[in-house]
């Protein structure tokens, strides 16, 4: 095998390999749509995060605008501090409302942002003040039963008054 031919093949091999890496990064992965380098962080404290995981998407109006990078238990307020990495292209007003939602019935949980009307925008490191916890099935059932029970007891009262 001639040296030059060999070099050519090795060159093609390296190009193919690096090309494959690029395709993986841009076409298969999310590097093309979401760039960690150009981002800012926001923090939100939630009473209950349910099943939210690191890397869960942050969506606004259904569009992915960032990703959860860290979840810590806060010893100051005894709730969960969720750190989010936000895409620089998307800015949100100060009174933005963050809630933990579920995609579909059994889908993954994500953070949903609903923009408010404030003039000032959230800056990197800012805290989202208005949060809404995840819906926890046990709480929902508990509340439902409690409501039913109090309805019934109200009804009983009425019955009593009738008597």
């Amino acid at each position: 095998m001639q040296r030059a031919t060999m070099d050519l093949w090795v060159g093609l091999f390296v190009i193919a390999g690096v090309g494959a890496l690029l395709i993986l990064a841009l076409k298969v992965g999310n590097l093309g749509t979401y760039n960690e380098a150009k981002s800012y962080t926001l923090v939100g404290n939630f009473e209950n995060i349910g099943g939210l995981k690191i890397r869960a998407p942050v969506k606004s109006a259904g569009v992915v605008v960032g990703r959860v990078t860290d979840i810590q238990f806060s010893m100051k307020s005894f709730d969960a501090a969720v750190t989010m990495n936000m895409d620089n292209r998307y800015q949100f007003p100060k009174d933005t409302f963050a809630s933990i939602l579920t995609s579909g019935l059994l889908g993954e949980q994500y953070v949903g942002l609903a923009a408010g009307g404030d003039e000032g925008m959230l800056k990197s490191g800012d805290k989202i003040m208005k949060t809404n916890s995840a819906l926890v099935l046990e709480d929902m059932i508990g509340r439902f039963l409690f409501d039913k029970a109090s309805e019934n007891s109200d009804g009983d009262g009425e019955d009593d008054s009738r008597l």
Partner: peptide
């Protein structure tokens, strides 16, 4: 096919 793939495959963690 592509969009679901892209939203689930994370560059840092998976690739």
């Amino acid at each position: 096919f592509w969009s679901q793939m892209q939203s689930m495959v994370d560059f840092r963690f998976d690739i």
